[in-house]
Structure formats: structure tokens, C-alpha cells
Nucleic acid binder design. Structure first.
Length: 257
DNA sequence: ATGGTAGAGGATCTA
């Protein structure tokens, strides 16, 4: 079983890349962030034509998340329950015995910004909700754009990024709090190349110079860890014309469900 | 040097 996450930065612009990627990789599940589409404009038929079901939670201009899957999803939940938020950043559903939570964590803008406080509050709400979900679902996977680089080795220039947004200690603490609920960063279960990143700024030739950050993650519950066989970043789509600024992250499991 | 690029939408806001 193969599950992936990809911040596409506009599904309208990136639809050809997503279609090619689905055809080439045949993931069982692909979670998308920054679809930037209202639900009425979701390209449902194009994706259905590839044999994938779609669940989505979109809005105009910003944010927006979706889950594409070979199996139909059950028990769909939109957003974080009991957390009032106009921004569409979460969708979750069950596939077989697997509970999938697709997240687009707020960027935060800068540590001085009000958006940074929103980000930390949002992460607290996510933690409180996931604590309950982990009781309900033994096989839980939480994946998406977390907008947090967990450690200095996940940053191309740690000194330049020290205490900056995406790297600050409160953000890293918040991510570690999620992991502390009983989740693991699947990427770090395996030996990985040095300087592995998932996002590169469009500016200053950042991708060509591999000036990136690893901010997209796949967190899995302990039961899933036992069956997890690989986790990797696919840099290939970042090399295409008009790419997303993020690369997909893929996790694989030996179990079939 | 406080820039630069991309997307949405139609002037800025967000990342």
C-alpha cells in the first residue's frame, strides 16, 4: 500500500502534473494541500476518470485540501471539530481500517506576525483533537504540509533560519507534541540521503541550488510503524515546467488493507 | 540591497 502527500499550490494549474503523477505512481491514497478551489470547481470528473475517488474541503483563493483514493472513503470529517476556523485546512476519512488525516498547517508568515499565533493555536487544537482520534483509530496516518522543519538537518542553512518561522522552537515543540501523542515521522524510520527537502522557494534558483526545507511530513501511529517499509521524497515533479514549490512525499506499507 | 517568484484575481494578499 502506497500513500502520498503533495502541496500542489493550485490544483487548477497543477492538474496535469497530478494526473501524470497518479498514472505513474498509482498510489492508493494521495492527499493534496493548497488546492485553492471552491468545491464546485474541483476537477472531480478528470480524477474519477483515472479510477480515483475524491473527497475535498475547499475555499476561494487560499488553502483547500483533498484526498484522492482508489477505495471510497468513509466517515468523512471536515476541519478540526470544536475549533472555529474559516480556513479550509483539514479533511479526514477512513479507508478500510486506516484513518487518514490530511492537514495544511498555517504558514505563520513570521514569528512576529499574528498569523504565527494563529499557527500555534491551530496546532494546539490539532493536538487535542488527534489525542481523541488516536484512541478511536489504532491505524492513524496524519500527513500534509506542516510548515515546520523538525530539526536543523531538515534546513539547508540552519543558521540563517535560526528562530525564523518554519524553524522556531515553539513550532518544533508543537510538532514534537503531536509526535508525543504516539506518532512517528515515517521519513526518519529509514536511512535517508543528506539534504533531503520537500519545499524550495520559487525565488533565487532555490531548487537548482537545493536550498530547501523538509516541511511536508507523514506521521504514523505505532501499529502502522510495524508495517511501514519505506518513505521517500519524489523530487521529479519539482523539475517540471510550472511546478509546485513542494515535492510529494510517499510512504509504503507491507500490509494490504 | 528587505529584493526575488508564483497563484488568485483583478489591487493586493499569501506563501
Amino acid at each position: 500500500m502506497k500513500i502520498a502527500t503533495w502541496n500542489v499550490n493550485s490544483l487548477k494549474v497543477r492538474l496535469p502534473h497530478v494526473i501524470d503523477w497518479l498514472n505513474n505512481h498509482q498510489p492508493d491514497i494521495l492527499c493534496l494541500q493548497e488546492t485553492k478551489l471552491i468545491d464546485d470547481h474541483f476537477p472531480l470528473h478528470d480524477i474519477n476518470a483515472l479510477g480515483y475517488h475524491c473527497l475535498f474541503n475547499g475555499q476561494k483563493t487560499y488553502n483547500g485540501v483533498a484526498i484522492l483514493s482508489k477505495l471510497a472513503g468513509n466517515d468523512r470529517i471536515l476541519d478540526i471539530p470544536q475549533f472555529s476556523d474559516e480556513q479550509k485546512r483539514v479533511i479526514s476519512a477512513t479507508y478500510g481500517d486506516l484513518r487518514v488525516v490530511c492537514v495544511y498547517v498555517p504558514n505563520g508568515e513570521s514569528v512576529e506576525s499574528a498569523k504565527y499565533q494563529y499557527k500555534l493555536q491551530w496546532l494546539t487544537a490539532l493536538k487535542q483533537w488527534l489525542q481523541q482520534e488516536l484512541i478511536r483509530y489504532e491505524q492513524l496516518i496524519v500527513l500534509g504540509d506542516f510548515n515546520i522543519a523538525p530539526e536543523d538537518r531538515d534546513v539547508y542553512d540552519p543558521d540563517a533560519w535560526r528562530d525564523k518561522v518554519l524553524c522556531s522552537q515553539p513550532e518544533r515543540d508543537a510538532l514534537n507534541d503531536l509526535i508525543g501523542l504516539g506518532l512517528k515521522d515515517s521519513f526518519r524510520l529509514f536511512e535517508q540521503p543528506e539534504k533531503s527537502y520537500t519545499w524550495w522557494d520559487y525565488r533565487m534558483m532555490a531548487f537548482r541550488l537545493n536550498r530547501g526545507l523538509r516541511i511536508d511530513h507523514i506521521l504514523i501511529s505505532d501499529v502502522l510503524t510495524k508495517h511501514c517499509s519505506a518513505c521517500s521524497i519524489d523530487k521529479q515533479p519539482r523539475k517540471l515546467e510550472r511546478p509546485s514549490d513542494h515535492a510529494p512525499v510517499i510512504v509504503e506499507f507491507k500490509i494490504k488493507e
